[in-house]
Design a protein around this nucleic acid. Structure first.
Length: 435
RNA sequence: GGAGAGGUGGCAGAGUGGUCGAAUGUACCUGACUCGAAAUCAGGCGUACUGCAAGGUACCGUGGGUUCGAAUCCCACCCUCUCCGCCA
């Protein structure tokens, strides 16, 4: 959520920032709504103040009456005076009860402002390559894609996934399952042992408040799987561990000296993929369910930009240790997600597609999510007031897509797969799958 | 699923209609004493909105209601704990 003060005081600045990402804001509507809100709110509070003082006087008179003083007449006078406020006050409060949520709803649907360092651009084509690492492998045979490789090895079964659940679901078996598990374990171990993250395990179903906190709601409900419960409440399957993990600090005021908090979390992720019909229908690239190891940092406002570089580096480390060629992209303003102030995508080389595909997305949200979550920090020494903290997250990495990258980059002419050296300790020393 | 108890400030814990945004203790911050610390003493110490300020308003699990006035009474819901049942 944007700082509503910024929206009130510098609306042109907000509009300009939003324009960079192709978003339009109706400032006239906002200002009209705000003017109305302000008028009704001050009037309501004046009436409440009047009621409160009069009622207090009645209270004092009650005390005197108890001591035997004759105050009934004055009291009756006051009571009728207060009663006269009743209707006007009720009307104002009712009006306010409509206006305040309207203002909230308006602000809740505005995306974050892109950071100054974010390149301009409308879509994917405006993204800027920051670096390239590794060399795409050269094969003396025609490389297969992960579907052909996986099916031939008996490790990937898309038909079976379709039978059990539907399209965009996969069944893995044998060494393929183990390789998948090894990848997740490896990532968790690197991030905890070498990068200082604390591993957390969290709910895979979350409530609407949590989805609001990280920005999935109210605008992107159609991207989520929803569970309706008998009592009328609802839960959502997490589309990323970002949601439950970031919401750990929702509603909290943290001692600034306790920051940064660094969490790593392995979960399945569930996405409805509404609107992506026909896109990546083959294989494991785009699934309704996939595993991901997520990095989340909770930091002070001063720390967040350094933290974004560090966090992205942590994700890159996994690719490097697996010796997978990748490139690092700075997303342009028009291609960033709703809540992000800046995002780096890491794209891994996929030989069969002869291109780089997203395998990680690392973002600094600045105070955008923190404001929605009312997550704040306080400098105890300075005696300062609570202020919104900053949040970041990034995939480190998407496990399913990493599996795809390993299969395709490490394949041999006979269809067997070389197990990357870093994973062998997790595979009981196995060097070749299907050899 | 059945029965019961309870949700108040960082924590503990009072408060059952009226100067209650809330006693007290503890933690924490500042100052005094001290070479320093402990102990002691004095003061401060929730969040948000609003106002130049003084101040005002809201918040005692959440949402409604009763009342001139609600932490306190009524209704619904949520959560926690205990016991029983069921169960990975």
């Amino acid at each position: 959520m944007l700082d509503i003060q910024l929206l009130r005081n510098q609306p042109e600045l907000v509009a300009a920032g939003l324009a960079r990402r192709g978003a339009v804001i109706d400032l006239t509507a906002f200002e009209a709504l705000e003017a109305q809100r302000k008028a009704v709110q001050t009037q309501t509070q004046d009436l409440q103040a009047k009621r409160n003082t009069l009622s207090k006087q009645i209270g004092m008179l009650k005390g005197k009456e108890a001591k035997g003083e004759e105050v009934a007449a004055v009291m009756a006078q006051l009571m009728s005076e207060v009663a006269g406020l009743g209707d006007a006050l009720k009307a104002n409060e009712d009006q306010l009860a409509v206006l305040l949520p309207e203002v909230d709803a308006f602000v809740a649907r505005i995306p974050n402002l892109p950071h100054d360092s974010v390149p301009g651009g409308r879509d994917e084509s405006g993204n800027v390559e920051i670096l390239r690492w590794g060399t795409p492998p050269v094969f003396d045979f025609s490389p297969k894609d992960h579907v052909d490789l996986g099916e031939a090895l008996g490790g990937l079964d898309f038909e079976c996934g379709g039978k059990i659940a539907g399209s965009r679901f996969t069944v893995m078996k044998g060494q393929m399952s183990r390789l998948h598990r090894a990848l997740a374990q490896f990532m968790l171990d690197v991030h905890t042992a070498e990068h200082g993250y604390t591993e957390v395990s969290v709910p895979y179903l979350v409530n609407p408040d949590s989805m609001f906190g990280t920005g999935q709601l109210p605008k992107f409900e159609e991207d989520l799987f929803r569970i309706e419960r008998a009592d009328g409440s609802r839960l959502y399957l997490i589309p990323t561990a970002e949601v439950p993990v970031t919401n750990i600090v929702r509603g909290e005021i943290l001692d600034a000296s306790a920051l940064p908090l660094k969490f790593v979390c392995h979960t399945p992720c569930f996405r409805s993929e509404a609107g992506s019909y026909g896109k990546d229908t083959r294989g494991m690239i785009r699934q309704h369910q996939f595993d991901k190891v997520e990095l989340v940092q909770i930091v002070t406002p001063e720390q967040s930009w350094d933290a974004l570089e560090a966090l992205t580096g942590h994700a890159e480390t996994i690719l490097r240790k697996l010796n997978l060629p990748y490139r690092k992209m700075a997303l342009c303003a028009g291609d960033m997600g709703f809540s992000a102030a800046k995002t780096y995508d890491l794209e891994v080389w996929l030989p069969a597609q002869n291109t780089y595909r997203e395998i990680s997305s690392c973002s600094n949200f600045e105070a955008f999510q923190a404001r929605r979550m009312q997550a704040r920090c306080r400098d105890v020494k300075g005696g300062g007031k609570p202020r919104p903290l900053h949040t970041l997250n990034g995939s480190g990495l998407a496990v399913g897509r990493t599996l795809v990258a390993v299969l395709e980059n490490y394949q041999r002419a006979d269809g067997s797969i070389v197990v990357p050296a870093a994973l062998r300790p997790y595979m009981g020393g196995l060097e070749i799958i299907g050899g």
